[in-house]
Design a protein around this nucleic acid. Structure first.
Length: 694
RNA sequence: GCGGGCGUGAUGGAAUGGUAGACAUACGGGACUUAAAAUCCCGAGGGUGUAGACCCGUGUGGGUUCGAGUCCCACCGCCCGCACCA
């Protein structure tokens, strides 16, 4: 008897199975399925044009989990959608004269086909794109509900302005003083903006991190730092009589009120109102402020600035040393947008204050004695001491621990008054700010409000939603194409019937991705969610994505879940029970004559002597460079389509999962994918032999 | 500076405190072939030895333990995030 065992041919087998899954709707999930539920979600893609290997890795991980849970008899929700608003569509519209909408949906069609060829167990019946009118209409409803619930404010504020993208950026989107997308140096501008009141939840967002025990510590720590809680004392210093200002007091924020006996100066931010007032009659101060502004944001990219300041000529009374005064400076290292924009300097126990005091000859008075140090001989060794110890040189605080001294001095100042106010108030400060969501862009969710000359700025009634984006926009002028549209913004006021204009700002695209996981639970519903359904599925049991979203997307989503809870759309506060941050896909880089070379053009030969590379066509030598994240700019990308065509999706998936632990970077190599391919062939052969024997 | 993580063959990496290096890649040798590819088999951490075997090996130095890659302490190096936050 003869038999032949054929080689596994993914080009036949994979499409056959994928067709069956499609026809039988194998992965379509029903909300009324009584089995135990499991929700696995990977961060949805931006439809940039084509999927990349990072997508393959991300979605394969989720897929394995989804299939495993399904095999264990669970009802598994594993959906897919598109984070489809954003600037690249507008850029494409400008450069290629393709409407942003067409460009986006064409990309989605391509990428959907690619994802299907990967063989993912996805419920495609729930697919949506955030630029679908049906989706952003629901988002507009959410905005109105948030507005009604007091979670939205409109205020004039200094904003980060990206001069290249011509739009506002959230603090989270400014990296080293540059726009996260354009890389342009960010400017400060004063604009009226819509804000979501994330700061209402500062404490809750912080403390609830402790409950997220299936999140990586790294991400929790990053969020903790970002929220930036500090407990301290808001403290008034009484201004000594002078002719330079009528201000009676200066308010500072400090986390170290226990060191008040070591205070030797007050420093104001260059943006402090009092500094501006003094500058009006003091050219030295005015020049210093101008200089500080000139450095401003741009200098943040340079190495640490020297601690510089200028005396204002004003003095304040020392709050605990009768008859003594402290000089008031304007200093370049004091930030206006944290605390009160003013500090008291205790040089002995704060490194910045130490440098400042050393430069300007101000007293350095140690008031914290390190354990085992001698109070008589202890001296600072060229830098501030910020470690543990006991208070000394401090009158009625002497001998106390730092913690006890903080309590005692807070009580002391709490019982005194300056400028007709309580001198010291315990205060908790957060670094977290409200989220400015206004963007001066066309391709985003319109903010559903109108500006009426008579009635003011008022929300569009829900019955008039959606506020639809026009399709016929042009990009011949810089700035917001919506604003330039000839008719779109002109409307009538629903209250008074008079003329009104629409808000032309659209929402930050991070809004779109802050609740999509909830929409997947019932993507066709007439409301943002059907709470009975959403609460059954959420929170997401396992969320998988890149660590680059550790702050922005994940923090905003946590806020949104709380806000949707408050407005009755959801019944929980945390969206993601488990979070997994997968590593990147990296690849060697290749260079010749200063140009990056694509791996497809490179032939590698290896021997005991090592690996060498040459051009596949000409045979010219190529330098093997460092291993980097796959990126178009370095050309070290491998196209998933080609891999699937050559080796099949399962080989690509197997390699992605087997070569490196999922949380670490995986290095894509030709040899690795070959090995994975051979491995699968062997497995297939064994399976065939078992079938034959059976 | 603060925080998180990592350090094991040529390489990616395995190892509930119990035979370190699974599996894979690369490399070398062999079988098959006119030849190559594919496939299959063998070798392989380093050192000494004809061999049986022995010694040394998980960044460095200590410690706990019958036993440490794993736990504890100190240090060195690398990666990532945040950072003039008072």
């Amino acid at each position: 008897m003869t038999r032949t065992i054929e080689r596994y041919n993914p080009r036949v087998e994979e499409p056959r199975w994928q067709k069956q899954w499609d026809e039988r709707q194998s992965f379509v999930v029903r909300n009324d399925d009584p089995r135990e539920r499991y929700y696995v979600l990977e961060m949805f893609p931006y439809p940039s044009g084509r999927i990349h290997m990072g997508h393959v890795r991300n979605y394969t991980m989720g897929d394995v989990l989804a299939r495993y849970k399904r095999a264990r008899g669970m009802n598994v929700l594993h959906p897919m959608g598109w984070d489809a608003f954003g600037l690249p569509a507008e850029n494409a519209a400008m450069q290629n004269k393709v409407p942003a909408k067409d460009w986006t949906y064409a990309n989605i069609a391509t990428m959907r086909k690619q994802l299907k060829s990967i063989g993912l167990a996805l419920d495609w019946s729930r697919e949506f794109a955030t630029c679908d009118v049906e989706y952003y209409e629901q988002q507009q409803k959410l905005f109105l509900d948030f507005l009604e619930a007091g979670l939205v404010t409109r205020k004039k504020s200094k904003v980060n302005w990206d001069p290249v993208d011509m739009t506002v950026l959230a603090n989270e989107q400014v990296i080293d003083g540059r726009g996260w997308r354009s890389g342009a140096v960010v400017e400060q501008r004063e604009l009226t903006q819509w804000f979501l009141k994330v700061s209402d939840y500062s404490e809750d967002l912080l403390s609830a991190l402790d409950t997220l025990d299936r999140w990586p510590d790294k991400v929790r720590t990053m969020q903790r730092n970002w929220i930036g809680k500090s407990e301290g004392l808001r403290l008034l210093f009484e201004v000594a009589p002078n002719d330079k200002t009528r201000a009676a007091s200066i308010e500072v924020f400090t986390t170290r009120p226990d060191t008040i006996f070591g205070a030797s100066f007050i420093a104001l931010s260059a943006d402090h109102p009092l500094a501006a007032e003094i500058a009006a009659g003091n050219t030295e101060v005015a020049n210093f402020i101008a200089e500080a502004h000139r450095h401003g944001t741009a200098a943040e990219t340079l190495e640490k600035l020297e601690k510089l300041g200028v005396p204002t000529g004003i003095y304040v009374k020392h709050p605990v040393k009768d008859g003594e005064t402290l000089p008031v400076y304007v200093a370049n290292f004091v930030l206006m947008d944290y605390g009160t924009g003013a500090i008291f300097g205790c040089p002995a126990h704060d490194q910045r204050d130490f440098e400042f005091a050393s430069r300007y000859g101000l007293p350095i008075i140690p008031v914290v004695l390190p354990p085992d140090a001698d109070p008589v001989t202890f001296a600072l060794d060229g830098e501030a001491y910020s470690g543990p110890g006991r208070i000394y040189n401090s009158g009625f605080l002497d001998g106390l621990s730092i913690e006890d001294a903080k309590k005692k001095i807070a009580a002391y100042f709490g019982s005194r008054a300056v400028d007709n106010r309580q001198q010291g108030t315990i205060e908790v400060n957060y670094r977290l700010r409200d989220w400015g969501i206004s963007r001066q862009r066309y391709w985003g969710c319109p903010i559903p409000v109108i500006h009426c000359e008579t009635c003011g700025t008022i929300p569009v009634p829900k019955k008039d939603l959606p506020v639809k984006l026009p399709d016929d926009v042009t990009f011949d002028k810089p700035g917001n194409a919506l604003d330039h549209h000839p008719t779109w913004k002109h409307t009538t006021c629903h209250q008074c019937g008079g003329p009104a204009t629409r808000e032309t700002d659209t929402m930050d695209t991070f809004v779109d991705s802050s609740w999509y996981f909830a929409r997947f639970t019932d993507p066709k519903a007439d409301d943002p969610t059907v709470p009975g359904v959403a609460n059954n599925w959420l929170p997401v049991d396992q969320y998988i994505g890149g660590v680059e979203h550790a702050i922005l997307h994940l923090l905003y989503s946590r806020f949104f879940t709380r806000a949707m809870h408050k407005t009755g759309h959801l019944g929980m506060d945390e969206p993601f029970k488990g979070l997994f941050t997968q590593g990147m896909v990296v690849h060697e880089t290749y260079r010749a004559d200063g140009e990056w070379i694509s791996p497809a053009e490179v032939e590698i030969s290896a021997s005991e002597a090592g690996r060498t590379a040459k051009r596949r066509d000409t045979g010219a030598p190529i330098e093997i460079g460092s291993i980097e994240k796959m990126s178009k700019s370095k050309k070290n990308v491998v196209d998933p389509d080609e891999i699937v065509a050559t080796y099949g999706a399962d080989t690509a998936r197997w390699f992605m999962l087997s070569d490196s632990p999922p949380e670490r970077d995986v290095q894509w190599t030709e040899a690795g994918i070959e090995g994975a391919s051979r491995f699968l062939q062997r497995v297939w052969k064994i399976v065939q032999e078992c079938k034959f024997l059976a």
